[in-house]
């Protein structure tokens, strides 16, 4: 069966500081094709261009050169309104810093993408309660973000990302601020969403254990994709060791 392309990056280059003396090329002609139902993980050393790549793929940023296609439409030809609509209808963002809105309650935070999509009040209430129950944060719905723990806040951020049933989840270091127990609970949930509900996931992480939940790994170094690993028939443990090997070979270079 032919797999459907959901996200395509065609030779994207991102240069910062254009018009100044401090030109910096964060990405150099990077290409990626992501298919529906894939769980792609991006790894690499600090400053390699991981977040720049994910931001350019998810419409948060626009590449200096090259093209990004989402569901076959090039991002550059879309208006700001269309991109905004695309984001709240198709993408679910999860960040290391949670990025919850401090002035809204947990319930309202989760409801924002539905409010943007003009969903009616009854449906908003129902969907928010459903997703909150699924993630175990139902008891925090009337609280404000600053009244919740880090683990709860990240679960709320995931609720917000999932409430619209997005086609793609974009996660930038989603477990960066969490303890190992919470981290693995959240990754198990990602895996379940990916395997059972067919949600595509694009995730950046530093942690090889976290990366081992994915089905494909891109290793970015100095703004280019250094290598790609497909999990295919490997067990999670075997896949994990492969990821560790890549990271180790990177560290080995330090001593050569």
């Amino acid at each position: 069966m032919e797999r459907k392309e959901i996200l395509v990056a065609d030779k994207i280059t991102k240069i910062y500081g254009i018009g100044t003396k401090n030109l910096f090329e964060a990405l150099h002609e990077v290409s990626l094709t992501m298919y529906e139902g894939e769980f792609v993980c991006i790894m690499g050393p600090s400053g390699a261009g991981k977040s720049t790549f994910i931001n350019n793929l998810s419409t948060i940023d626009i590449p200096t050169k090259g093209k990004v296609f989402i569901n076959g439409t090039e991002v550059r030809v879309m208006s700001e309104g269309q991109i905004g609509k695309f984001r709240y209808e198709n993408l679910g963002f999860i960040f290391q810093e949670f990025n919850l809105l401090d002035s809204l309650t947990i319930f309202e935070n989760i409801a924002v993408p539905l409010t943007l999509a003009n969903v009616n009040k009854e449906e908003i209430t129902q969907r928010v309660h459903d997703v909150a129950k699924k993630l175990g944060v139902e008891q925090t719905l009337d609280k404000f973000p600053n009244e919740c723990s880090g683990g709860q806040r990240q679960r709320v951020a995931i609720c917000r990302a999932l409430v619209t049933n997005p086609k793609i989840i974009i996660a930038d270091e989603p477990t960066g601020n969490l303890d190992s127990k919470n981290s693995h609970e959240i990754l198990s949930l990602f895996k379940e969403l990916n395997e059972k509900e067919g949600v595509s996931i694009l995730m950046v992480t530093h942690d090889a254990k976290i990366a081992s939940y994915s089905t494909k790994l891109l290793y970015i170094k100095d703004g280019i994709i250094d290598c790609t690993i497909e999990r295919e028939g490997l067990s999670q443990k075997e896949y994990f060791y492969k990821i560790v090997d890549i990271n180790s070979s990177e560290s080995q270079e330090l001593f050569e």
Binding site: S103, E108, T115, N120, K121
Partner: peptide, 19 residues
């Protein structure tokens, strides 16, 4: 916010900040 403003994309945010 629990009632009429829940479905208002601008008011939901502006009134929370106002408070």
């Amino acid at each position: 916010k629990k009632g009429v403003f829940l479905t208002k994309r601008y008011r939901l945010i502006s009134i929370s900040n106002l408070s």
